[in-house]
């Protein structure tokens, strides 16, 4: 099963997914959804890395994906702990309730 892929299509797919992630982060009010959208963006960039690695037949793209994965795991664990804490303290996950740090 030999596939032929054009680079720009994969990269554009990654870009599209990334843009969707951005939209998700901005338009959502609930922090959980924002965190999900961030995961989408991370995945999109991972896709771009893997595509680049595959284009040149090098392992570096996958290495970067592994790092992104580790980063995502760390980020999710902290993020979810924060979500739990925010929910306990504010009884809501509305990001607009967390505007205390304004200048």
């Amino acid at each position: 099963m030999k596939t032929t892929v054009s680079t720009e299509v994969v990269v554009l797919l990654a870009g599209l997914l990334f843009a969707l992630g951005i939209v998700g982060v901005i338009i959502r009010k609930n922090i959980i959804f924002m965190l999900l959208s961030v995961e989408i963006m991370l995945n999109a960039s991972g896709l771009a890395f893997v595509a680049a690695g595959s284009r040149w037949g090098q392992p570096d793209g996958q290495v970067m994906f592994v790092f992104i994965l580790a980063m995502a795991a760390a980020e999710v664990s902290i993020g979810l702990a924060l979500i739990l804490q925010i929910y306990h303290q504010h009884k809501s996950l509305d990001i607009d309730n967390l505007k205390e740090m304004n200048g």
Partner: peptide
């Protein structure tokens, strides 16, 4: 936000397409 993201993507599109076509068969790493 959608319009903003669309603009961002459009720019990205323009940049990617300007670099020319490139098709290949991915090798297994």
């Amino acid at each position: 936000p959608t319009v903003l993201a669309a603009v961002l993507f459009a720019e990205f599109l323009a940049l990617v397409l300007s670099s020319g076509q490139d098709a290949y068969s991915p090798a297994v790493v």
